[in-house]
Amino acid sequence: MAAIKSVTLKINGQIHELDIGSKVGQIDPADTLIHTLRETLGLTGTKASCGNGACGICTVIMDSKAVPSCKILTIECDGKEITTIEGLRNLKTGTLHPLQQAFVDFTAFQCGFCTPGMIMTAKALLDENPHPSEEEIKDALSGNFCRCVSHYQVLKAVLSVAEKGR
């Protein structure tokens, strides 16, 4: 395989063409996706925690699937479409995504550190299955760590969105 010189990512609808290299603003072949998002592009909405794919806190959506951005190398993401927590709100109207609004309405967080990952995981589920059962929601979220135990409120929030239009 010929060495690639740049990586093109579509993040929250915007195209980013990033050169490979070790200078500031470039993508080092060892950079993880979360590093690129947070450090290179300044998208700090995605939080980092365990760094080894165990906690789901760094979850983003890549080509419709919820993935841990700490376990993916950016150079593997060429041509991928990525959505982060920053991409959910309608920036023109300021309206929150229904899941975000439900998290507000049910206070589905305490410290909030796990919240972006929870919302992105739930969004990937609802995109694929708009009306999941409670069990399906639990299943989808079972890789998401929340130490404050906001689980019960998160379930209520996601269910409230899942039940709309059923």
Partner: peptide
Amino acid sequence: APRRDATEIVTGTVQYLDDLK
């Protein structure tokens, strides 16, 4: 009542230490 920081938390704009520049 909703938390005062609710919108920042659900939009990822709330800043924890590692988010400060």
